[in-house]
Design a protein around this nucleic acid. Structure first.
Lengths: 108, 108
DNA sequence: TGGGGACATAGCAATATAGCGATAAACATA
DNA sequence: TATGTTTATCGCTATATTGCTATGTCCCCA
């Protein structure tokens, strides 16, 4: 059986995380939160992040499904969460994304 | 529903192709075919590629399963096939891999 | 012409993934 | 306290993926 090196387990998790049309698109949207989520009034989406409900609405999926996708993106380190009151504001983790991209360019 | 831009369909296919422990490992093995497949006598693995049977044996999966994985890697452009007689010799498509890596570093 | 090796395809079973509605938890406010 | 809002989790169904065996195809060689 295939035995992946310990260090690559995390990379495989990251690869699976972005190998999804929904998650790839959400990551893309989060590059420009002000343009893609202009209706968020509670917090500045570019500074704090975007809440789950607005992401679900734009992706036209249910809120639980969006929550699950965002959990997967979080487990792969591609996004960060900022929790304020009952909101969860999601934003890109540019450092982790860059590091992943660098790993891929070297190791794949 | 999510509607991925036309151009990204191919990228999503590529992401799904390497989001697999088996396929990621095979791609890794194909970086150094002489070391990883020293038993191939018919053709030089480093020049022509590696045949399906040896890949299946090293990965400890059945030949049809290996064939399927290699087909997925081929459809994503990550490998090339060289057919000689009844053999199919697989090798990395370094150009396509580099192009993919460049796309990812810019667009994800 | 027949046999054997190498590969791809078909068909099936098991597992993983993605979607939903219902519901619980946390919190602000009337 | 009661209500409404936001999010996460649970349970379920549908689909996709991965593995296998069986089989067909192609090609070389006896």
């Amino acid at each position: 059986m295939i035995c992946l090196p310990e260090a690559s387990e995390h990379r495989l998790r990251q690869l699976k995380a972005i190998a999804s049309d929904v998650r790839l698109t959400v990551l893309e949207w989060l590059k420009d939160p002000r343009t893609n989520f202009p209706n968020q009034k509670t917090e500045d989406p570019a500074k704090i992040g975007v809440c789950v409900t607005l992401i679900a609405a734009k992706a036209e999926i249910s809120q639980p499904t969006a929550s699950r996708h965002l959990e997967i993106l979080k487990n792969s380190d591609f996004v960060k969460i900022r929790k304020i009151h009952s909101w969860s504001f999601y934003s890109r983790n540019e450092d982790a994304i860059k590091e992943f991209s660098r790993w891929l360019s070297i190791n794949v």
